Simulated assay, not measured.
Amino acid sequence: MVQIQKPDIVAVVEPRISGVTTDNFIQRSGFDSSYRVEASGFSGRIWVLWKPSVRLDILVVSSQFVHGWCPDFLGRKIFFITFIYASPNHSKRSALWDQMRALEPAQGTTWTLGGDFNVIASLLKRRGGSRSRLGVCEKFNDFLFDSGLLDMGFHRPHFTWERGDFLQRLDRCLCNEAWYDVHPASEVIHLPKLGSGHRLILLDSGNGIETSSERPYHYLTAWNEHSNFQRLVKETWREDRHIDDNVLYFQCRSTKWNKEVFSHIGRRKTLLLACIKGIEVTRARVDLEFFSDIELDLKHELAKVLENEESLWHQKSRTSWISKGDRNTNFFT
């Protein structure tokens, strides 16, 4: 179960009741509005319930998610929200990540996702169980990276699902950078289990306190490799200005530059790879020097993006992942 804002919105995934029992439960729940995705048997169901304090419009539904938006949540600008129940079936679950990519909103629009993802992002997200299957889902990690989504972390206990001595963190909340711009004090709390192998998770957006101006500033070493960054530094630093003013002005300009120029490394890499693939297909038919030059330029740019990606992941993970050869394992903790 996912609860939003103590709780104005509640999502229940894979509930163990159906039919009239469901109707009676929802009537007694205290929530005025609800939406249900039913399934055969007892698996695959998703319920979303919300109070009058929230306006929730359901936009897209499937057996694995309910996607909607809230135009007036807490009096702030709109945000998109997706409730997830990923299928235990590997092939069905793999299709979910592509469906989520298609739902990605425009840049600058807030988006949060929560629920049972039925995958782990690293070995640190499990304890016990058979070692014959590691269970780390690289497709899920690729989806996070390509979409620029952040795991919002949690307050203990560490694992959200258990069966005997086998424990995993399958339930989580994700968000994009725009969400933290509006709700920088957001936190996810793992609540007690109630008659299920899964813990409840609570997403608290920060009690409506506007603190986005206090969001910590982060300098990314990957900026140094960008061709325009040195010019930005020269334009923002003046000898006749106090050093504190220079620092504040640089922080403001570099934050804006990061969004408008540096952009998202994952998207840039995906675009460049697609362009290179298109050039290779074209050259297989018509081998012109013009296309060879374009391909060479694209590969040079891709090399720079990969260097930026390496630097970014190294800074975020703060571990020796380069020697270990796994950029994802230590970041998603």
Rank of each mutant, 00 (worst) to 15 (best):
G197M: 04
H198L: 05
R199V: 00
R199C: 00
L203H: 03
D204P: 02
N207L: 12
I209D: 09
I209V: 15
T211I: 12
S212R: 02
S212Q: 08
S212M: 08
E214G: 07
P216S: 08
Y217K: 08
Y217S: 12
H218S: 09
H218R: 14
T221V: 13
A222R: 01
A222E: 02
A222D: 01
W223V: 01
W223M: 05
N224Y: 10
N224C: 14
N224E: 12
E225S: 12
E225Y: 06
H226R: 06
S227V: 14
S227D: 13
F229Q: 00
Q230H: 14
Q230Y: 05
Q230L: 06
R231K: 14
R231A: 12
R231V: 07
L232I: 05
K234D: 13
W237I: 01
W237K: 02
R238T: 04
R238Q: 13
E239W: 14
D240E: 15
R241E: 08
R241T: 10
H242A: 15
H242R: 12
I243A: 10
I243C: 08
I243E: 11
D244F: 09
D245E: 11
N246H: 09
N246K: 05
L248V: 08
L248C: 14
F250A: 02
Q251K: 15
R253M: 10
R253K: 14
T255H: 09
K256G: 03
K259I: 04
F262A: 10
I265D: 01
R267V: 12
R268E: 05
L271P: 00
L271Q: 11
L271C: 13
L272C: 09
L272A: 11
L272K: 04
